[in-house]
Amino acid sequence: MSTSILPPRMDRRTAIKWMLTAAAAAAVLERDAVGADPAMPAAKGYGTDPDLLKDYKPGAAWPLTFNETERATAAALCDVIIPADAKSPSAASLGVHDFIDEWISAPYAEQAADRKPILEGLAWLNTESQRRFQNDFVSLIASQQNALCSDLAYAPIAKPEFMTAAQFFKKFRDLTAGGFYTTPVGMKDLGYIGNVPRASFAGPTSEVLKKLGLV
């Protein structure tokens, strides 16, 4: 494909990127001051022969990263993505934001690549909340949080100025869903009823077969 004509919006998109304000920069600086590297954690992985029978809580395998503000913002965003409803509680009530902290704190390349975008994304969320609603994200009312996140919900149709934030939101939504649906509560919410020993495997019920047009 020819690259001779660069549409103006490309330049604009590149130019926008993250607009770190003083407040967001301060959050990053604060972490730098205590020595954590936002690029790659110094901790060691769990090795090639970890204990597979142990129950690992976030923080058990390596130290976590979030400061108080980041942790609160992450929890609030988890709950915008997966709030409580009639069937199950919210993501943050199950500690999913701590799993996301574990994720960005992991000393592996795949997770480390998410570290900077997520830390910057959380900071951006507060900056944007301040800009639009003169409050931090955690203090916004639900309709304000939803309005903000609606602009980020689907990267392919996001406005150019929200493109980077929309990519952050996609990653954060995937991690929130992954964290939530791997808990017993989340599994039950989806209707997963396995992982129990049974005497036999009979295949689908007649009700299922009928619904699929297989009888």
Partner: peptide
């Protein structure tokens, strides 16, 4: 209906158009 994992509800935007909140659930 396999045991849900990290990817079970990830990357659904191609079907949902990017839902979040109660509609995502």
């Amino acid at each position: 209906r396999r045991m849900p994992g990290l990817g079970t509800a990830a990357g659904l935007e191609w079907l949902t158009g990017g839902s979040f909140g109660r509609s995502f659930k």
